[in-house]
């Protein structure tokens, strides 16, 4: 058997070459994924058309899972696997997110030190609006997530921001999701080049192979959706955020969308996504837009 012992510079040269090739193959795989999704001839230079992307994206999943009803895609692994669905029915007799909802309602009603409340920060007092997040905010030229809006509300009222991943943040987003159940995702991309650019960056991120494992989000949640990966059933990317936040038995606690996506990102051995950083927010904007029309089903429960 040959044992390879590259010299330092040999190794470095190869790393450089590998990097170049990675970039090339990222480009190739993005283009291929898009071709596959859209099933149209290569027209890489076409102007961004989120609505056409969304239709092609949804058509892909409807064709792959002809028996799954549209809104059932919100239920991730339970929607695409019979065995899991049975377990789910049992778990839901005592939904494990109930304590978080109780905690969230109490917190929601409690005034800040200045007398204002969360309800004062949101349209319609925060009720039935979860399906409109993330939003593009013209004043900042950036995307704001639901968690971002909650922390901005707190900071603007003189309170400390909450942890992005779990705890009270998940309890509050659970409350907001609960009052929005059944309302279809309704993400808008305003006619602003910065909004379109954010969408475009999010889409690129979703399909780009990253990290030492060279995997993209699509590697696990598009073509192998519904397949078994060790103990898990891979959720389809369509509707993948509609049940957030979730109580996950594996965690033994609640997690926000940010927590779920960060742990996927870590699985691919890529650099950790900055909590609610711009890359992250753009990704969530793209993914949520792809699910326009799928009803909110959060909070959710997962194995």
């Amino acid at each position: 058997m040959v044992i390879e012992m590259p010299t330092q510079s040999d190794g470095e040269n190869r790393m450089i070459k590998a990097n170049k090739r990675t970039r090339f193959s990222v480009a190739v795989s993005v283009v291929c994924a898009l071709m596959l999704l859209a099933s149209v001839p290569v027209k890489a230079a076409d102007a961004t058309n989120p609505e056409a992307d969304r239709k092609a994206f949804q058509a892909f999943f409807f064709a792959k899972f002809p028996k799954v009803a549209k809104d059932d895609f919100a239920n991730g692994p339970y929607a695409v696997n019979e065995g899991m669905r049975k377990q789910w029915k049992e778990i839901m007799e005592f939904p494990p997110y109930d304590p978080a909802l109780d905690e969230g309602h109490t917190e929601w009603d409690k005034p800040f030190a200045n007398g204002k409340t969360y309800a004062d920060c949101f349209d319609n007092k925060g009720e039935g609006i979860r399906q409109t997040y993330p939003r593009f905010i013209a004043a900042t030229g950036q995307v704001e997530t639901l968690e971002g809006a909650i922390n901005r509300c707190r900071v603007e009222n003189g309170e400390k921001p909450l942890n992005w991943m779990t705890g009270m943040m998940a309890s509050l987003t659970a409350v907001m999701a609960e009052s929005s159940r059944g309302k279809p995702f309704d993400i808008t991309i305003p006619d602003d080049p910065r909004a379109l650019a954010a969408y475009e960056r999010g889409k690129e991120f979703f399909y780009a192979r990253k990290g030492q494992l060279g995997m993209s989000c699509a590697s696990c949640h598009v073509s192998p959706a519904g397949e078994r990966m060790r103990g898990d059933i891979l959720a389809p990317a369509l509707g993948i955020l509609a049940a957030m936040p979730i109580y996950r038995s594996d965690w033994g606690s609640m997690g926000t969308t940010i927590r779920r996506i960060s742990s996927c990102s870590a699985q691919t051995r890529s650099l950790p996504l900055e909590d609610n950083g711009e890359d992250y927010r753009d990704l969530e904007y793209f993914l949520s837009y792809m699910s326009n029309g799928i009803a909110i089903a959060g909070p959710g429960t997962r194995p």
Binding site: S29, C32, R209, L213, A218, S219, C220
Partner: peptide, 16 residues
């Protein structure tokens, strides 16, 4: 992934 660009399988050798 060089053989099949949408394969989720990591490029074990290329990525070292």
């Amino acid at each position: 992934p060089m053989r099949n660009p949408i394969a989720p399988m990591p490029p074990f050798g290329r990525n070292r």
